[in-house]
């Protein structure tokens, strides 16, 4: 099994940390991983993305131009990455702030109201874990147990008391993710 995924959004949304937790969780189940960030002036407000590859085999290129799964969290990333989903692959997006929703019909598309759900939880920092939940529901490639261990590994000890909140957010993401039909575009916002 090899899963090639890119997570793309704004800096500050927790895009890189989400990728890191994915990578750590995969290591916990004995897989090979690669994590390649866009780096540079992309701090809060700019665009940020991370390519994560999880595999049972040794990983060759950390740089990819098409993905099994593309997770899109802002409009600029939709423009850039919708076309990079492999035919038959998966696109997951948060409709918040998306004014040109995806149009491809040769891929499976899902929505997750990550911003709304995080606001409901009164904790916007859980946003990326809600997205993680949506992803794991659609692509159940990681055992929740290993995600727990992955969180323990990637968060500093002083933040370990927050792990249950993160797991709760993952479960909300799993519940709230919905399939999306391209013809529903007019229903968004």
């Amino acid at each position: 099994m090899t899963e090639e995924v890119i997570i793309a959004g704004f800096g500050g949304q927790g895009v890189l940390s989400l990728g890191k937790i994915l990578a750590y969780s995969a290591i916990m189940q004995g897989q090979e991983v690669s994590w390649m960030p866009s780096y540079g002036p992309e701090m809060r407000g700019g665009t940020a993305n991370v390519t994560v590859i999880l595999s049972d085999e040794k990983i060759n290129s950390p740089i990819l131009n098409e993905f099994d799964t593309v997770i899109i969290l802002n409009q600029p990333s939709m423009v850039k990455f919708e076309k990079e989903v492999k035919p038959g692959g998966i696109l997951i997006f948060d409709p918040n702030g998306i004014h040109n929703p995806p149009t491809r019909t040769d891929i499976k598309i899902y929505t997750i109201e990550g911003v709304k759900e995080a606001t409901k939880l009164k904790n916007t920092k859980t946003f990326n874990m809600i997205i993680m939940g949506a992803y794991l529901k659609v692509k159940p490639i990681l055992e929740l147990d290993n995600v727990h261990k992955g969180l323990e590994k990637s968060l500093p000890t002083r933040h370990h008391h927050l792990i249950p909140k993160n797991i709760e957010a993952i479960q909300i993401g799993m519940e709230k993710v919905k399939p999306y039909e391209v013809s529903q575009a007019h229903l968004l916002n």
Binding site: I27, E32, V33, Y39
Partner: peptide, 10 residues
Amino acid sequence: DGVIGQMMEK
């Protein structure tokens, strides 16, 4: 190079 320096792997 910037790829090997910035990427994470095992």
